[in-house]
Design a binder for these strands. Structure first.
Length: 377
DNA sequence: GGAAATGATTATCT
DNA sequence: AGATAATCATTTCC
């Protein structure tokens, strides 16, 4: 299709200039022009035009030749006297058919996905500034200084070490990618620069090519980020998942919580302030207190019989405490203190709370669990 | 070693 | 937002 292309070029200034540029270039026949097409052209278009056809044919056929042949041919064409003229024609055509830089998405907005990953990596301390040594040392110091060199701190440093490992892999991979990317970009740019000797390539085009390469590499980078995130998540779940590191509360803490629970059995829903106080007393967090009460309520409710003994125990305990306190203060008020255990919870007369109401209905058939001496007035 | 106990998490409800 | 109920994953107990 080589020779057919020439006539389809847009007519106008470019072509005209080419023609005028070529008028003085006689005697260029290099290839034979034996086919009928060329003969026809030769007859109708004249000598210089036919030479151009030959050159174009050579250019089009260059890909079919061997590498060495092609290289030689390229060189020959590059040095050809007509080359500047052809080149300028190409430039002009290109200028006219500006289809190239139309479809460039200018500065596509940062991918939300990659932003999420970046944020997470930053939050986990994988991608941010190095803070390993200092904090690890601090943790070790804290573990050594603190009264309880718990295994949790050991595991914590273990976690840090693993995280540092991930971090290191991540950075070395990232560096590798970046190096590969810039290497490849350079390569492509050199190629384009070299090609720009034979065909017009605008800086915009090069820019676009670079952008395409960068996009490709950033999608590879995203994969790296994604798998790094996954690794961190797995590490987290292995080391920091609280469920895996459950420790029972100490005896005294359980006692405090149980005391509160059974002495508020009619409404075992401590307020925020009460929770804070309990948390302080027990050396646990407020949410742990909430968890404890949540678990306790549900488990108590599910099997009141099972907890009866415990309930009685704490009822007696608080009763004794109350008695002691009031005896020491002064036995002024009569049976004022309303609470004290299961009996009250079952039949006390003050306003039925949420917990209370739920139970009253389901409780009638479990009354036999209530010990007779605990009935309230 | 396995059942029971227990603290934490999750889905769902109000 | 806080509660419940089911469930998970561990610890404790027998």
């Amino acid at each position: 299709a080589g020779t057919d292309d020439a006539p389809s070029w847009p007519a106008g200034g470019g072509r005209y200039r080419m023609m005028t540029g070529l008028t003085g270039l006689g005697g260029l026949q290099q290839a034979d022009v034996g086919d009928s097409d060329s003969v026809r052209k030769q007859q109708s278009l004249g000598q210089p035009q036919q030479d151009i056809g030959d050159i174009l044919q050579q250019i089009m056929a260059i890909t079919d030749e061997s590498l060495d042949e092609a290289q030689a041919r390229k060189h020959a064409l590059n040095c050809h006297r007509m080359k500047p003229a052809l080149f300028s024609v190409l430039c002009e055509i290109k200028e006219k058919t500006v289809l190239s830089i139309r479809g460039v998405q200018e500065e596509d907005p940062p991918d939300p996905q990659i932003m999420r990953l970046d944020n997470m990596l930053l939050a986990e301390g994988v991608s941010g500034p190095e803070k390993g040594g200092g904090s690890a040392a601090a943790a070790a110091a804290a573990a050594a200084a603190g009264g309880s060199p718990t295994d949790s701190s050991i595991e914590h440093s273990d976690y840090r070490a693993k995280l540092a490992q991930i971090r290191q892999i991540y950075h070395s991979e990232l560096e590798k990618y970046e190096q590969a990317c810039s290497e490849f970009t350079n390569h492509v740019m050199n190629l384009l620069r070299e090609q720009s000797r034979t065909r017009p390539i605008s800086p915009k085009e090069i820019e676009r090519m670079v952008a395409i390469i960068h996009r490709k590499f950033s999608s590879i980078q995203m994969q790296l980020k994604q798998s790094t995130c996954e690794a961190v998540m797995i590490l987290r779940s292995r080391f920091l998942d609280a469920r895996r590191k459950r420790r029972n509360f100490n005896k005294q803490a359980t006692e405090v919580l149980n005391e509160y629970f059974y002495s508020h059995l009619s409404n075992p829903y401590p307020s925020e302030e009460a929770k804070e106080e309990l948390a302080k007393k027990c050396g646990i967090t407020v949410s742990q207190v909430s968890n404890w009460f949540g678990n306790k309520r549900i488990r108590y409710k599910k099997n009141i019989g099972k907890f009866q003994e415990e309930a009685n125990l704490y009822a007696v305990k608080t009763a004794v405490d109350a008695a002691n306190v009031s005896a020491q203060a002064s036995q002024a008020n009569s049976p004022a203190t309303p609470n004290s255990g299961t009996a009250c919870f079952i039949s006390c007369t003050h306003k039925p709370c949420h917990f209370h109401k739920q139970f009253l209905s389901s409780f009638t058939h479990t009354l036999d669990y209530v010990e007779p001496d605990l009935e309230c007035n």
